[in-house]
Nucleic acid binder design. Sequence first.
DNA 1: TCTGAAAGTTTTCATCC
DNA 2: GGATGAAAACTTTCAGA
Lengths: 158, 158
Amino acid sequence: MPRPELDDLDHALLGLLQRDSARTLAALGDQVGLSPSAVQRRIERFRETGLVDRTVAVLDAKRAGALLAVCLATLDRESRAEHERFRAHVLASPHVQQLYNVTGDWDYVVVLATTGVEEHRVVADAVLKDAPNLRRYSTMLVLDPVRATLDLPTRPAP
Amino acid sequence: MPRPELDDLDHALLGLLQRDSARTLAALGDQVGLSPSAVQRRIERFRETGLVDRTVAVLDAKRAGALLAVCLATLDRESRAEHERFRAHVLASPHVQQLYNVTGDWDYVVVLATTGVEEHRVVADAVLKDAPNLRRYSTMLVLDPVRATLDLPTRPAP
DNA sequence: TCTGAAAGTTTTCATCC
DNA sequence: GGATGAAAACTTTCAGA
């Protein structure tokens, strides 16, 4: 899949879509100065190339009564196969909201989403304590999810 | 805003909407066993109560060429006002994708999204190095965003 | 009060310019 | 990139449980 060339209008549209994708093609067109059909064609290209992966509803964590936890984990052996084994184990849980392989003292950042402390215990034990090839891990409970988005910049800020 | 009572169908709908909100009301209705209008009314209630905060397009971080970084930060003074000052400073940057106040040795987890290492340097300096009342911070660059969602459970897993 | 069905309106999609 | 007609979806209204 070739990397699509993005112009100013594409960047503007991607910014709008990341903040609110429920707008109509006409409304988006008004914002960036394009006809609805032109907007539609660009969005379709975003999806075809995989740049836009999906469209989702974002719940309010507080109203949903959810408990988030940011966990840090380091593996014992560092081989490719061991990493794969660890990832497969962690990804098997639907409570794993985010999983990042990172640089530094820790190998992975794992964000867990549960319905409360009781469930967190059970899930954290299953996902991390029982994980294969784990050397050590640490858990930080989220007291306040001040901001939670998946927004990405598509070009350097001016 | 009173907490809405959610039944099994609501939980099912919320799960579907968090994974893919681009489906039609008819398709959603087929999945859970409701008419399109009934589905619509429930979704409208989700929005009115604020349980569903917004609908967004999720970009593929690799294809977007984005660089993520997970930073940990600890404040110097722990007063409410100092927390507010720190948060306001951090939230002012659009590159702050996520910000969590957490328990443990660190006060905050900050996820930064930039277009590459050059921009990351600039942004990390502006957001964290120059942050008011910061005692210390640490940065982990994301080598691989294995999973990135905002999915939340709405009820305990069986 | 909530659900389901039907009519009216808007949006989206495909084709052509 | 824009414009048009056709198809689909959404919104509103109303009747029934």
